[in-house]
């Protein structure tokens, strides 16, 4: 039985030191700094190196008008309430997106997600945290 134990120890040790590939979904994360009232603020945290493109999708109640946006959004459909940003050449670190809308929203009325290509070459979709 000592031989079996030795073999298991060597097997486990070897598995630890043999390189393995890790799929890192966490290149970009985002959360709401403000999600009620007439202002919506989102903070993104971007890893280094940053992905070439980050898509931010913000879902608002239908019919809401966006008064101002920083940075400028690429597209907004009031019929669906979907606003989208196309963020290229982003720097690693924190980034803020602000929206001013024409009527106040309540907690839980809005949601959003971010999309980017992860290190494995797949599209990652991460929900914005409240």
């Amino acid at each position: 039985m000592k031989l079996y134990r030795l073999l298991w120890v060597v097997l486990v040790t070897g598995a630890i030191f043999v390189p393995t590939y890790v799929n890192a979904e966490g290149l970009v994360t985002g959360r709401y700094l403000q999600e009620t009232g007439k202002e919506v603020a989102i903070e993104l945290e971007i890893s280094s190196p940053p992905p070439p493109l980050v898509i931010v999708i913000q879902n608002l109640p239908q019919g809401i008008k966006i008064v101002a946006s920083d940075p400028e959004m690429k597209t907004y459909d009031p019929g669906t309430g979907e606003a989208k940003w196309l963020l290229s050449n982003v720097a690693s670190g924190k980034m803020r997106i602000s929206l001013q809308i024409d009527r106040p929203v309540k907690k839980g009325e809005i949601s959003g997600e971010i999309r980017f290509r992860n290190e494995a070459g797949q599209m990652a979709s991460i929900a914005l945290k409240n």
């Binding site: 992905p51 493109l53 898509i55 196309l86 290229s88 999309r115 290509r117 599209m123």
Partner: peptide, 9 residues
């Protein structure tokens, strides 16, 4: 979204 991410990548 996936296609435009591929282009930029």
């Amino acid at each position: 979204d996936e296609e435009i991410l591929i282009v930029y990548d």
